[in-house]
Design a protein around this nucleic acid. Structure first.
Lengths: 111, 111
DNA sequence: TTATTATATTAGAATGTTCAAATATAGTAA
DNA sequence: TTACTATATTTGAACATTCTAATATAATAA
């Protein structure tokens, strides 16, 4: 157990396991954005945004480029979107199943 | 920020963000296994294995079926492997990039 | 019924992650 | 140089996850 590969892979998934970081990646779908612009979009404190950008950077999900005093972020490998969208398929089915069970419960009289 | 979708998606990734849970899913690639057999493969305490199986179950990554006194686990939706393997592509490139930088540093004399 | 085997759950301690606030840095312009 | 704007880093508190150990449950067999 705890092969280096599983350890690294787990870190990779953890890096995606935060709502704000997912929101950041979604905000960058249509191209690079400055931190200020990102902040407007995701509506969090500057410091918090910066901390989460650091995490995304550390796994190379995003890359930063400076232009004068502004820093622009862009996704490093846009295939990550294929990956994120595929995730939707998987948990979509999981949710569907839960929903079906839920519906079944709701439409059953004797509860 | 914090759309329910991002919240759920983050939980989904967190559920995959543990080396043991990834090892469990890998162990189940070739078909269902009993908890005892799984335990032999991943080499952890019974209680710990059970707790992680509970988490995988709660996100429907795995499903349990009882046969007499033995419980067999199997992956609920085998597409999860397509997903996990795609992850490898993404972080593989990330790692490659780091490796390249590292190599460059190592082969540069003036350091 | 009791004992046994297989697995799950619970409670608290240990550890890790995130947040909030303050401070630091880096570039530019005056 | 000083002041300003944009962004990053640090620190400790708040919160969440994981581990350990003990206990619970469920099925079976004796």
């Amino acid at each position: 157990m705890n092969s280096p590969l599983h350890l690294y892979k787990a870190e990779f998934f953890k890096a995606l396991g935060h709502p704000l970081r997912l929101a950041i990646l979604d905000s960058l779908r249509d191209g690079p954005l400055s931190v200020t612009k990102l902040q407007e979009m995701v509506q969090v404190d500057q410091s918090i945004l910066s901390q989460h950008l650091a995490k995304l950077r550390s796994f190379k999900f995003v890359t930063a480029r400076r232009e004068k005093t502004t820093i622009f972020y862009h996704v490093h490998d846009t295939d990550v979107y294929i990956f994120l969208d595929l995730a939707k398929n998987i948990y979509g089915r999981q949710l569907q199943l839960s929903q079906d069970i839920l519906n079944q419960l709701n439409t059953t009289e004797h509860i």
